[in-house]
Structure formats: structure tokens, C-alpha cells
Write a protein that binds this DNA or RNA. Structure first.
Length: 750
DNA sequence: GACAGAGGGTTTTTT
DNA sequence: ACCCTCTGTC
């Protein structure tokens, strides 16, 4: 479909004039196109001034893409004056202007997770509570849950002693944040909602926007929805676009009821469903539907495609995770041989822990790859240190930052001194920065320590002075020189220190990028602006243009599409993932939607791999194929096994095959007995080779011919055949003992 | 103040 | 298995 035309429901959504609009946009149905066309339409046909239109997304990446497409559609000038941004960036912008009404100064800092944890640590300290008894992580999770649902400490009810403690911590946390003139991510939304609900300032915010559009609406949490409803209260020109089948963020507060219930909140809402998929082959769409149609609660909709049938989905059994990696390598080579670009190939996994083995395989095979997610640049210690200096310069009340750098690089200010300083500051209800100026009044700090603290304060004053007068990147450079930070690293003269210096250079580079971009956008580049961007924009590692295979978690894949998708680890307990908690059915539902999201990322080729055995989190797990594989409709998939998987049944029985990548990388071939696929009695389609009933499940270990087992007396052995003696049993061969008939319950994985 | 070793905890992740 | 954090020692 060319960019210029829209199908019927797409056009209807784009042309919708006033009032609430709900668009259910199936995977690959042209959702972004609808939003951008609708905006263009509002500007061009309805004569809405662009700055009175707000488009909200969840990620910066989505916002960036939307902006690019709007530029193409409406021209750079109009695109620039539209409000396009994430919930958080939009609210931060509003708070900088209107926040004074609730006691926020415009130079407020946004605390990231690490900062927030440090605040909790201080709150625990304030209340004399033990970190081990109240882990900051858990405390923070508790606080965020309240805030995501719009409750401050005043609204959070206490029903028990534990609640009581939690409540006091919540209060102390909020107090600490306010004292530091800082907010957390939740506050950005919550505080704007407060402004909207209860202050005259709220009307000013409301009157800024005539139209509000929201992307990925199924991912909003209660607070975000409340903010939106308040924002459009006067005109109700709220257009939300989303797909309940792609709701995968329940665990971080997203509430799929927001999209499912939208019609009840806005009874006069127009509802439009986009059901034609333009992305994937018929087989891939059918595969996706096979999985999602078993979802218990969903908005009725029929995804379909006019695209060709395409290749079968390849379901591949591998012996273990290394064999799986070797197969992934082989598939990538195959796809590339057929002319698929590397960057059009994606490897998905459920958890990051799976990436290491895959990376090793790719590296050994010399295939360029890029891992999305994982370690974050802005969380590196040296980067956080440097930023802490800048943040203190902007907002000296930020105790978290001051504590971070008070002795970095080391300047002889020890723990004891710091503790006395903080105690005094708490007692006198003052920020640490101000306590530094009054260090003479602190009785229990010795003369030598006082001198060092005075020196530190002087250093900070210099940094602040520089920050007033210079561009962001110049400030960084001066800070690193003034503090001796780089010199200290240079003196270390280790590879690690060099890497840190390199990171600091990179930070400087990203500051220069920011300055250039801000100037291009007609904004004034400032240290404060850069800091906000650092906190709200974490994708340093965006998908780049390079020809590299992309590795990422299934969550990271949302909103993307690839010519070829390889889904690894398609095993029960891996995907659907089973954590430590007994999984509730809501969790399984979300795993199912996650599988749906993953499948629908593929345009032409889809490969799903599963292993018989996997080492993860220090354990060997024996796996059954994922139920999602069993849910692929008849005729969609083609089942295969790797050579190593088949070899397991045959030769080199007791040789511990240390699988080197080359040996593993032998191309897969069909199992000797091609597996047939027939409907099981309950209507599901089950593959005989891998879903057969000739498997004994004992202590999570599936036993079949070739399975390695261990016995207390006979040691390591291998199963020759399964036998029935009234309970699961096998005949197994043990070197030195020969064939033995053993009850399965006496066996352990070998 | 640096470093080694123990201990705890591990889904997913944006902002 | 691995990684990060905390603690205790030199």
C-alpha cells in the first residue's frame, strides 16, 4: 500500500472530527499511519493550530518515529510546533512551567531508579529501619504501585503494622524528594494530574490543547488514564489507539481495562477496528491467531491479510542452548544466502540471561550482531558521577547527588564525617549543600575534616559558576578537570580506567549532539535540558543503521518488524515464563499476548526453536516444548530437529561432547521419522515427535530414549527404552554395570 | 581506602 | 552461573 492511500477504517479514523475515538489497531494494521494522517488532517482540514495538538507515546523511539513521519506529511515547520512526546517528557515540560503552583521549582531534577533507591535508603535511615528487613527495592515497588494508581501517602490506607511502616516510609520518601526539589517518574504524571484536578493552574494546562492522541493505549496505567481524562475534560477530543492483544506491561502497572473499558467511560465514543494486516504472510498471521485466539478475554476482532501464504513456520528442536545457538547461526546464514539483510533478522528471547550463549555463537561464527537492552550507558558509575556534579550545579539541594560525589574522586572525606554531616543536616532540616556552608556550627566534626568539607564546598561553588556561563559539554570538561576525575583515572593506568575515560568522552560527545539538536530545533541548549534528556531518554542503543543481526527480549521487540524472526527458548517455563511465584492465570494470559506480539513482528520468515535441556540460572532444566508451539494451527508449521538433537539418540554415547561451535553448526536435517501432525482430542494440534506420551515426567525430567540419567549406585547412564511396570520406569545402560531396569523415581538428570 | 570474599537475588523495562 | 552489593580485613 502506498503512503498516500488509506483503507476504509483507516480513513474513517483519520477523518474523525470531534469527540472521543477508540481505534483497535491489530498488529501490522497501519496504526502509526492512522495517527499521523489524522494529525495532518486536523491541521489541514479542521484548521487546528498544530501547537494545540498533543500526541502521546510511551517511548522516545515511538515519539521520534512519529515526528519523522509527521515531518514528511506536514512539513518541518508544522511538525515542530506539534506536541509529540512521551507521557513523561510531556508532563515534565508542563511541570517546568506550571509546577510552581504545587511547590515545585522549575529547576527540579528527575530521579531515576538508582536515585530513588538512594532516597529510600535515606528514608529508612530517617526512620531507623533496617535495609535488610525492608529492602529498598520492595519499598520502592510498594510506593510506585500507590503512585501509579494515583495515591499519595495521604490516600494510602493502612490496615496493619506492615502497612503502617510502609506508609511512614512512603511519607519520608516523599518528604525527601520534595526537600531535594526532585520528582520520580510517577510524580511527573501524578503532579500534573493534581494540577489539573485541583488548581486554577490546571485550567491553563487544559486550555493549551484542543486535541489529544494516544498511541499504545493498552499500556497506560491508572494514573496516566486519569491524567488524560482530566486533560480533555472540556472537549473530550481524545483519540486512543491500541490493541488489547498486545498488552504486555501489566507487571509495571499497565491496565488493559483502560482500553477495554474506554467505551464505558465515553459512551459516545466512535469505535473503529483496523483488522487488515499489511505486514506478515498468511501463515504467520495464522500462527499468531492460533496463539491469541486462546486468550480468555479479548475484544472481538478478526485479523486478516491479503498477503501470500509464505513459507511454513519452522519449529526446531535443539538439544541444548548451545545447539540452539548453533542452529540460530545456521538459520541466519541461510537467510542471508537468500538475500535477507542482517539488520532484517531478529533473534528474540524471553529473558536477557539467554543472550550470552547466543552471542557466543554469533561471535564465533563472525556474524555481526547488536544486543538491544541490557547494561545501560547512563547507569555506569563514572557517567553517574560526572552527571551528579552537573546536577548539583543545577539543583544544589539534591542530596542524593551530593552524597554520591562527596568523596569521588577520593578527597579524604570519610564515612564518619559524612555521617556526622548528614545527621546534622537532618536535625537542622537543611540540605547537605547548605550544611556544608555552615560546617563551623557542627560540633562533632574535627578541624581537619572541616577543612576538607570547606574545600569540597568551594569546589562545588566553582562548578556552579562554570555551569552558569558555559555550554553543557564545556561544563562537563571543566568539571572533570576541576575535580581531577580524569587525572585520577589516568593515574590508575588500567584497561578498566581507560574504558571509563572513554565513556566520559562518549558522554561529552552525546552532550555535543544534544547541543546541536537543540539549536536545530530552535531551543536553547542548557545543562538542565541535557540532564532531563539523559533521565527521560535511555535509548542510547537504538537500532542503528549498521548491517547487524538484532538480539533482544520479546518485550523490546514491540512496535518493530523484521523480515525474519527467530524466537528462541520456546519451552514450557521459559516461554510461557514461570518465575518463582505460582503463576496466576492473568500472567499466563500476558505470556500469550507476548507470544502474539513476537510472532507478529515477522514479515516473511518465522523460526521457533526449543531445547530439550537448558542450563539457566545455574540449573539444568529439562524442557517440554512450549504450549504455544502446540497451538500453531495445522498446516502452518514444519517441525525439524538439529543434527545434534538426533545424534543424542545414537552414537558417542558416553563421550562428553564438548560442543564446539563448528561441530554444532552442522545444518539441521529432518528427523528420520518425519513427524506428522494430527489433531489431539481436545482440538489442539500436537506433534507426535515432541509432544508424545512416551515420556515420563519425574522430578521435572522428561525421560525418553537417549536421556542421560544418574543413579545413586550405578552412576551416569543413558535411557535405552521406557517400560511399564505400573509406574514410570526405564531400561538404562550404565557403563560398568550394563543394562538395568530402574524405576524412574530413583533417577536424576545425568 | 583498596580489595577480596561472602551473600543474596535473579522476568520482562520505560520513563 | 553470574552479577552486584555489602562487609571485613589489611
Amino acid at each position: 500500500m502506498s503512503d498516500a492511500e488509506l483503507n476504509e477504517p483507516q480513513a474513517a479514523a483519520a477523518a474523525h472530527a470531534k469527540g472521543p475515538l477508540l481505534v483497535f489497531a491489530g498488529a501490522g494494521s497501519g496504526k502509526t499511519r492512522v495517527i499521523t494522517y489524522r494529525i495532518a488532517n486536523l491541521v489541514a482540514c479542521e484548521r487546528v493550530p498544530p501547537w494545540r495538538i498533543l500526541a502521546v507515546t510511551f517511548t522516545n523511539k515511538a515519539a521520534g518515529e512519529m515526528r519523522i513521519r509527521l515531518e514528511r506529511l506536514c512539513g518541518a515547520e508544522i511538525a515542530r510546533s506539534l506536541w509529540v512526546g512521551t507521557f513523561h517528557a510531556t508532563c515534565a515540560k508542563l511541570l517546568r512551567v506550571h509546577g510552581a503552583a504545587i511547590g515545585l521549582q522549575p529547576n527540579f531534577l528527575i530521579y531515576d531508579t538508582a536515585d530513588q533507591r538512594a532516597v529510600v535508603a535515606r528514608a529508612l535511615d530517617d526512620l531507623n529501619l533496617d535495609e535488610r528487613r525492608y529492602p529498598p527495592r520492595a519499598v520502592l515497588a510498594h510506593i510506585h504501585k500507590h503512585k501509579q494508581e494515583g495515591r499519595g501517602p495521604e490516600e494510602a490506607a493502612s490496615h496493619s503494622y506492615i502497612d503502617d511502616v510502609a506508609l511512614r516510609l512512603f511519607r519520608a520518601y516523599e518528604q525527601r524528594l520534595r526537600a531535594a526539589n526532585a520528582v520520580d517518574f510517577e510524580d511527573l504524571i501524578l503532579l500534573v494530574a493534581r494540577l489539573l484536578e485541583g488548581t486554577p493552574e490546571g485550567d491553563k494546562i487544559r486550555s493549551r490543547f484542543d486535541y489529544v492522541l494516544v498511541d499504545e493505549f493498552q499500556d497506560t496505567n491508572a494514573m496516566q488514564y486519569r491524567f488524560l481524562r482530566e486533560l480533555v475534560k472540556a472537549h473530550k477530543n481524545l483519540c486512543v489507539v491500541g490493541d488489547d492483544d498486545q498488552s504486555i506491561y501489566r507487571w509495571r502497572g499497565a491496565d488493559v481495562r483502560n482500553i477495554r473499558g474506554f467505551r464505558h467511560d465515553y459512551a459516545d465514543a466512535t469505535v473503529i477496528k483496523l483488522e487488515q494486516n499489511y505486514r506478515s504472510s498468511k501463515r504467520i498471521v495464522t500462527a499468531a491467531l492460533g496463539v491469541i485466539s486462546r486468550s480468555e478475554e479479548r475484544e472481538p476482532k478478526e485479523l486478516w491479510t491479503a498477503n501470500s501464504d509464505g513459507d511454513p513456520v519452522r519449529v526446531v528442536a535443539a538439544r541444548d542452548e548451545r545447539d540452539e545457538a548453533a542452529f540460530v547461526v545456521e538459520s541466519i546464514r541461510g537467510a542471508r544466502a537468500q538475500g535477507t539483510e542482517l539488520r532484517q533478522i531478529a533473534v528474540f528471547y524471553r529473558v536477557h540471561a539467554q543472550s550470552r550463549v547466543l552471542e557466543e555463537g554469533l561471535r564465533a561464527a563472525n556474524i555481526a550482531y547488536q544486543v538491544i537492552g541490557g547494561a545501560k550507558f547512563y547507569e555506569r558509575a563514572e557517567v553517574k558521577d560526572a552527571l551528579a556534579y552537573l546536577r548539583i550545579a543545577i539543583n544544589p539541594r539534591s542530596d542524593v547527588d551530593l552524597l554520591r560525589i562527596v568523596n569521588v574522586p577520593t578527597r579524604g572525606i570519610g564515612d564518619t564525617t559524612v555521617q556526622r554531616l548528614t545527621a546534622w543536616a537532618t536535625a537542622n532540616d537543611t540540605a547537605l549543600f547548605d550544611a556544608l556552608a555552615r560546617v563551623e556550627e557542627i560540633g562533632d566534626i574535627g578541624a581537619a575534616a572541616k577543612k576538607k568539607l570547606r574545600g569540597f564546598r568551594e569546589l562545588l561553588d566553582q562548578v556552579r559558576e562554570v555551569a552558569q556561563s558555559s555550554a553543557a559539554s564545556a561544563v562537563l570538561e571543566r568539571v572533570l578537570a576541576l575535580t581531577g576525575y580524569v587525572r585520577t583515572l589516568e593515574d590508575e593506568d588500567t584497561a578498566e580506567a581507560d574504558a571509563r575515560i572513554e565513556n566520559l568522552r562518549e558522554l561529552g560527545g552525546s552532550m555535543q549532539d544534544y547541543e546541536a539538536e537543540a539549536q536545530a530545533a530552535g531551543e536553547d541548549p542548557s545543562v538542565a535540558g541535557f540532564l532531563e534528556r539523559v533521565t527521560l531518554v535511555s535509548d542510547v542503543d537504538e537500532l542503528d543503521e549498521g548491517g547487524r543481526v538484532v538480539l533482544m527480549t520479546v518485550h523490546g521487540a514491540k512496535g518493530l518488524e523484521f523480515e525474519c524472526v527467530i524466537m528462541t527458548g520456546m519451552e514450557e517455563e521459559m516461554f510461557p515464563y514461570k518465575g518463582i511465584d505460582p503463576g496466576e492465570s492473568e500472567e499466563l494470559e500476558e505470556e500469550r499476548r507476548l507470544a502474539y506480539v513476537a510472532i507478529t513482528r515477522a514479515r516473511r520468515h518465522l523460526v521457533m526453536t526449543h531445547t530439550q535441556m537448558r542450563q539457566i540460572f545455574g540449573r539444568t532444566r529439562w524442557n517440554r516444548p512450549s504450549r504455544f508451539l502446540g497451538e500453531l494451527p495445522n498446516g502452518v508449521a514444519e517441525h525439524q530437529a538439529t543434527a545434534a538433537m538426533l545424534g543424542e539418540h545414537r552414537s558417542s554415547r558416553y563421550v562428553d561432547r564438548e560442543p564446539d561451535v563448528d561441530a554444532m553448526a552442522k545444518p539441521w536435517r529432518h528427523p528420520q521419522r518425519p513427524p506428522s501432525t494430527t489433531p489431539a482430542p481436545d482440538g489442539r494440534f500436537v506433534d507426535h515427535e515432541f509432544f508424545d506420551d512416551r515420556t515420563h515426567d519425574v522430578t521435572d525430567m522428561p525421560l525418553r530414549r537417549g536421556t542421560r540419567v544418574a543413579h545413586d549406585r550405578f552412576g551416569q547412564g543413558e535411557v535405552l527404552r521406557l517400560v511399564n511396570v505400573g509406574e514410570p520406569a526405564v531400561v538404562a545402560f550404565f557403563p560398568g554395570w550394563g543394562e538395568k531396569k530402574i524405576l524412574a523415581r530413583f533417577l536424576k538428570p545425568g
